[in-house]
Amino acid sequence: MPNTLIIGYGNPLRCDDGVGVRAAERLATRDEEVDASPSPPEGIAVIACHQLTIELAPLVAAVERLILMDACAEGEPGTLHERNLAPAALDIGSLSHHLDPRGLLAAAQILYGRAPAAVLLTVSGGSFDYGEALSPAVAAALPQLLARIRQLARA
């Protein structure tokens, strides 16, 4: 059973919105020629997905620590932000079926009795247009994001 869960989410078809997914993919699959750093140690699970859905709640409730990675619209493109999260039952859309990070924690808390310590890392996006490309500033910030995740996961 992993004790740390890393979830990168966003839409990789909308440029920088996919930075979390790209980061998660890099953490989960490793090409030695591209990236020489060691594989995620045991006890760490990595998920890449488009949205935070309620299906993640049981997985979240089962770990000690949750690390989330996403893009954000505010700030200078490529800037890394970090904040700790507490559960909060915020409804973000009555026709939709995905959750915001604090909502996911709240769902874990309400339905399964516990929510892990959680941190959200976001990278300010420069472009959210159609396209699979990260803008240069965000692409340049990716190694920094990965390094921070590894640091957090090791701690």
Binding site: R22, D31, E33, V34, E132, A133, L134, S135, A139, L142
Partner: peptide, 10 residues
């Protein structure tokens, strides 16, 4: 492309 880390087409 993967090996070279091509993440976008400029």
């Amino acid at each position: 492309a993967q090996k070279l880390g091509v993440t976008h087409v400029r």
